[in-house]
Design a protein around this nucleic acid. Structure first.
Lengths: 152, 152
DNA sequence: TTAAAATATATGCAATTGCATGTATATTTA
DNA sequence: TAAATATACATGCAATTGCATATATTTTAA
């Protein structure tokens, strides 16, 4: 039986939490709205396409996409199905593992990733970039990184 | 016709964006997981209950909840229906506006809000509080606040 | 080696969400 | 003040998500 020191969060901690959620919600809504207005796929597609582009010709296994995107297993399974139908990726059978598959981005997928980025990046600049100077961005980025690294 | 300077985000800006999304996802999953494990309602219920508690006997109109929680109109409509069924709020007809209603928290709702907070606050402390010192929390909180205030 | 356990992926079904629209009332405008 | 417009809220239906479980391997252990 462990005795766990259960300390209540102080005000600053609660504010960090509250504001993190709020900023995320507002910013995400804005950026996704911009993508949608441009008739582009949602952000989750972008995340997948970017990872696949980075992975190159080797491609990635679905379970690897799961790890890197933090999507649930069934979420990856289904989003791949849709992106494949749109022609932006291909699923190759996996030589060394009969259960698995290798997912590879297509040329159309590369094009779409780039097209999305031109809109997405402008949205990021609008929502974040124009509102922080260099030092602030560096500080914020660093603090977020630290927090992320500490999430077990 | 406006000429808009369309600047690409610098690396720090993109990192802020990426990490904001990532931290939010990780932290939210953890906290909601804890609530669920304790068989408590989801965070969206907490947000509503807290606002109603703050509003006191007057209660709030659904459209006011919409503004403060950033939920879509139909989302508020439906969550109120469920929370009401659970007995944590009451909908009163609105004297001065025949279209509307006044939403008031019940005693059971107050109890539940408190019960949720005991778990929720511990989760916030675990995810945020224990990973930031006073100065860091203040800095992060401040930067998030600035960014929020600048979202049109 | 063979049986048991673990891993990789898919999917049926229920719950939730989003969109579009409906109904009722209030406000504005001609 | 009557018609037009706007606001407040609800809801049918389609799309998405979550949960649980299925299937097909692969890996481990007896």
């Amino acid at each position: 039986m462990y005795i766990v020191k259960m300390i209540k969060p102080n005000d600053a901690t609660v504010q960090v939490w509250t504001r993190l959620l709020r900023l995320n919600k507002i910013a995400l809504k804005r950026v996704e709205g911009i993508l949608k207005k441009e008739k582009l796929p949602a952000l989750s597609w972008y995340d997948i396409l970017l990872e696949l582009e980075r992975a190159g010709a080797e491609g990635l296994r679905p379970y690897e996409l799961e790890e890197v995107t933090l999507l649930p297993q069934y979420g990856v399974s289904r989003i791949l199905e849709k992106i494949e139908k749109a022609g932006y990726l291909q699923r190759l059978t996996c030589d060394d593992d009969g259960r698995g598959q290798s997912v590879v981005i297509t040329d159309a997928g590369l094009k779409m990733r780039q097209k999305m980025w031109s809109v997405y990046s402008a949205a990021i600049e609008e929502v974040v970039g124009t509102n922080l100077n260099e030092a602030e961005a560096a500080t914020l980025s660093g603090l977020l990184k630290d927090l992320i690294s500490k999430q077990s």
